[in-house]
Amino acid sequence: MSIQSVTIKGFRSVRNITLPLQQLNIISGANGCGKSNLYKAVRLLHEAANGRLSEAIAEEGGIQKVMWAGGHRAGDRAKDPKRMILSVEMQHYDYQMEIGFPEPLISLFALDPLVKKENLWLSGYQRRRMSELMERVNQAAFLKNVDGERVSYPMLLTQEDSLFGQLADPHLYPEISQIRETMRNWRFYHEFSVSSSSSMRVPQVGIRSPVLSHDGANLAAAFETLRERGQTETLLTILQKAFPHTQFYVEELGGRFQMMMKKEGVLRPLESAEFSDGTLRFLCLVVALLSPRPPYFMALNEPENSLHPDLLPTLAMLIAEASQYTQILVTTHSPDLAKMIQTYREVNHIQLDQKQGETVIVAIS
């Protein structure tokens, strides 16, 4: 269920881009060229599948802040209403969602998105009606059910969210449900919170966690789960390579877990509250990439941030190794990290630039 390509139209600095993806992908470019915008656009597809489209757009400042702010170009259909289009082509399915502005003067909720259209097709049929599994226009939808019949969806949809987030009786629509679960399985990691009040710096209730949360809040539980599930040797080898003469472990305090560190020359163990920002972020990346439950797809947005250059070779090796089990997309402004990753595995390297405010692809190698 790997992603073949992602098309993004009308999102922030992205007017119209199609990203061809392979098993291991790197997006690079100068600061401000739009790398994070591509990452965020792909993440919106994941959030839509989780029923969080409105919340995710609100976190970005509302619909007005995420729409393309540039002018029309030659070939644009200027008479059409302004739309953001997110489309993903997978091995067997194509999915597309069109998002527009709310109607003016009708509601105070002017920052909410409106899902205008939503479609799901079997791939390889040029998106014809015969291959259509889902067609949604505004609040009405037609779905192909378990018997292969095209039926009207019996519920009136709310326009602020994807049909995926409102799908009832998923067993009646198995293929649509399968795509929803696939997109929910994707993982995204960016800027782990490492402030003094971060959840990672204080003991947390420990439950088995084969998946690191997107903000790293369950780091200690995910670390211990990884260790107990037979990844001890790999985990310790990587950490010894990155932090020589240092031991990391989890301390249990009445059901609450806390990361601890013993360092040669330091007379007492250090608690996670005393870890450097870079150490915490690196631990999160290690646990995410070694997950005992690998996702179909994982995106890392500028993972080199706050890391010492000495940690980059180990990070590159870890990303390359993880790509054997998970399709990976890495955005980075570090040419060194990109080169290091390429020494381990073949990479689909997409280089970006920004011209007149528009994010463009300048090279694919």
Rank of each mutant, 00 (worst) to 15 (best):
T7G: 10
I8Y: 13
K9C: 02
R12D: 12
S13W: 11
I17G: 10
L19A: 10
L21K: 02
Q22G: 15
C33Y: 00
S36N: 08
Y39D: 02
L44E: 00
H46A: 14
E47D: 09
G51Q: 00
L53W: 03
E55M: 02
A56R: 05
I57D: 04
E59M: 07
E60F: 04
A69S: 13
G70F: 07
G75F: 10
D80G: 03
P81Q: 08
K82M: 01
R83D: 06
R83H: 13
Q91G: 15
Y95Q: 14
M97W: 10
F101V: 06
P102T: 04
E103K: 14
I106N: 06
I106R: 10
I106Q: 10
S107C: 08
L108Y: 03
F109H: 12
L111N: 14
D112G: 00
N119C: 15
W121C: 12
R128M: 02
R129W: 11
R129Q: 14
E135R: 10
R136V: 03
N145L: 07
V146N: 05
E149I: 00
S152Y: 01
L156F: 01
L157T: 01
A168H: 11
D169P: 01
I179Q: 07
R187N: 14
R187I: 13
H190C: 03
S195V: 00
S196D: 15
S197D: 15
M200Y: 07
V202D: 01
V202I: 09
Q204N: 08
P210A: 13
H214T: 14
F223S: 04
T225S: 09
L226T: 01
R229Y: 04
Q231S: 10
H245D: 15
T246W: 02
F248G: 07
F257R: 00
F257D: 01
E264K: 12
E264S: 15
T279W: 06
F282R: 07
L283M: 05
P295V: 06
L300I: 05
L307H: 06
L307P: 05
L307S: 07
P309A: 11
I319E: 01
A320H: 02
V330S: 12
H333M: 12
A338R: 11
M340T: 06
I341R: 02
T343E: 14
Q356S: 15
Q356I: 06
I361H: 04
I364F: 10
